[in-house]
Design a protein around this nucleic acid. Structure first.
Lengths: 384, 384
DNA sequence: CTAAGGTGATTAAACGATTAATCACCCTCT
DNA sequence: AGAGGGTGATTAATCGTTTAATCACCTTAG
């Protein structure tokens, strides 16, 4: 704004029309009392002069910057583009800008990143927290996107239900021997996803869980996961907690000469960019980022528009809920949807693939979000 | 800031110490004339009261918001995380915040996105332009990150040199029959990358170029690229213009039973997240995003600190360079570096693999950035 | 002894919008 | 006709910081 910003401010418009600046403000905001004719004249003049209101001045006066902060554990995370895009879109639609902050590194970096945002007077913060960090009261509205099982979570995909989708899909194809591939058990998201999958398994199903951080701690970064051994042990389906791990498994299998999906099936999570371009296309489960972003941003806006409930913590009659400036009470979980591609197929091999395993390709079973209840009802009986 | 912002402003500090607000300002900024003792007392008090300067007020007064805008053609682009992370880091280091704007969709969306940033009074904009859009004078400093062959480009990776790195590497392995895989010829970046590769080819080399947009226009999105046919025609190396296409080629080859790197080699560009986790690991070429971001942000800061050179366009004695508020004159290109992994190996097959092709695994030839000149000197002779 | 110069602080005017308070004026009702 | 009410505008304060201008005071030189 400094240099070339056209010096068209309210005063300039006011002078040009011989009215006061306040009248211009009222006319443009439609708030005060201005005659319709004059208001129209002012709007026209503003348009003509290319007037652009100064968000800065407005922010100073109103105490609202019109900007949200977005804090991510690691901007380089492949899911980030989706989140950022969705949040930016939701925020822009509501008239807000989005300031990004990267909290890569330790949780101290996260605190610092938040601090920087607060100094910039953001009106609210959307945060995808790091593992094991608890978001404390920031003194400004906060939306937390993580997992329904994270305390203080505001909204997130229903990872558990997504896991169920995957499990139901694989079960319906006749699979009974699974390998779940995650990165670290410290992540609530991964925990939920695997938990959801496990929750669907019938009594006759078996599974193993592989944690990549453990494996790499032993064998080094980027080491082979040894998937062929697992296949030899009878596993017919690898269900990873995200597409990156699924891709790793998929290519390692292909390299080892294991046919996908003929010999084994592979699934991922998140429907990242490459999922649709690899061969065979990766069956995965997708988050409705737009919906999540709308809720996260909506929660922020609700709190902001509710106005400053200055009363610090006292005056709390009911005494139950500590009055924090956090957007609570909306622990929404957004349903995930199955994206069925080519890495999943009927279970093969001697592992006793039942006849019904052949009956895949159920009509109407490949169209995005859907409940798979009809397929899994017989299995649910055996749930613990 | 609205609600819970601690009401600790300069006046509060001034009152607490019985001095004027101006003195507090001077003491904290070290600009005016304040006695050392008082200055120290003020700093201590500010610390004690948890004073945080209002960027908003400062912005209004100084005309500098301390925020840059970052415009990206499509936030969902897999390279975006790297760019955003690097820019955010460079900006934060220089004391600036980063406001994101997504210009997905057409170039009108890009204009709108830029408009939104300008309304928020950004001090400068870093933009990765869409294909074929020309960044006009925005009335604020702009850094363009695209390709050295794009007019108005400020800084970017040296895609041409990156291409040379790949070509030299493959040539040294004995490859002579190439397939270049790009998305669209409209992209300067992709054009440069392929151009660089071609520039290294000796007379006895042959190549074909595949444009994915063309292929998909015919056969539909996500269609097979038909790489096996190309292999049958004698191609031993697929060099893609980015890792996503490389991954597509790689998995299609694996699925078709073609061995990588034994039968054919595959290379990508950008060293995206998955390049290191797939099997075999993808040989690629990497951008030094940190350096690029530093230059892009540095150019912005240079222009800003040069102060408002108000003189519109007149007063331009030499008359050559139109005085735009654009950060020109730094058409830097940042060298790329080869990341050698397992998708590349000696050329095999009847296509006349020369003896020297077997002589791969040169000692010291697998360590990130390096010039491959010693390997390619004999070939350079034959350049056009 | 007084003018000049230096030092360390204060005053006050911005920046550009919002908004409560005020004012001038006209109309209507009793 | 005077009180009361509505309308359409203006005035002026305010948000928190920066900064040019000013001021009071002290020192030193002529």
């Amino acid at each position: 704004m400094a240099n070339t910003r056209s010096a068209t401010n309210m005063t300039a418009i006011a002078d040009a029309l011989g009215v006061s600046a306040a009248t211009v403000s009222n006319a443009l905001s439609g708030k005060g009392r201005v005659s319709p004719e004059l208001a129209e004249k002012i709007r026209a003049k503003a348009e003509e002069m290319g007037y652009v209101p100064s968000q800065t001045a407005r922010a100073l006066r109103t105490g609202r910057s019109g900007v949200f902060g977005l804090v991510l554990p690691d901007i380089a995370n492949p899911l980030f583009p989706r989140i950022a895009q969705a949040i930016e879109h939701a925020a822009a639609t509501a008239g807000y800008g989005v300031l990004i902050a990267d909290s890569r590194g330790d949780s101290a970096a996260q605190t610092l990143a938040i601090q920087r945002l607060l100094e910039r007077d953001v009106d609210g913060i959307v945060i995808v927290p790091r593992f094991g960090t608890r978001i404390t009261d920031l003194g400004c509205p906060v939306s937390v996107i993580d997992s329904p099982s994270t305390p203080g979570n505001t909204v997130s995909a229903d990872h558990w239900q997504g896991g169920q989708l995957i499990a139901d899909h694989l079960l319906s194809l006749g699979h009974r021997h699974f390998a779940f591939v995650g990165h670290t058990p410290l992540s609530n998201v991964q925990g939920d996803r695997i938990g959801g999958m496990k929750s669907r398994l019938p009594k006759d199903a078996r599974f193993e869980t592989m944690w990549i951080d453990r494996i790499e701690a032993e064998r080094g970064r980027g080491c082979p996961l040894g998937v062929k051994d697992l296949v030899a042990r009878g596993i017919t389906a690898f269900a990873a907690t995200n597409d990156l791990h699924a891709l790793r498994v998929l290519t390692e299998l292909q390299q080892a000469g294991v046919k996908v999906p003929e010999d084994v099936s592979v699934t991922g999570f998140d429907d990242l960019v490459w999922s649709s371009v690899v061969t065979p296309g990766l069956t995965t489960v997708k988050q409705d980022m737009a919906a999540i972003a709308d809720i996260a941003v909506g929660a922020l806006i609700d709190v902001i528009e509710a106005g400053p409930q200055d009363a610090p913590v006292a005056e709390n009659a009911s005494g139950t809920a500590p009055k924090r400036a956090v957007a609570v009470g909306r622990a929404d979980r957004v349903a995930m949807s199955l994206v069925e591609r080519q890495t999943t197929g009927p279970a093969a091999g001697p592992a006793g693939g039942p006849a019904r395993a052949q009956a895949n390709n159920f009509p109407g079973d490949d169209a995005g979000a859907h409940s798979t209840s009809s397929l899994t009802q017989p299995l649910r009986r055996n749930e613990p």
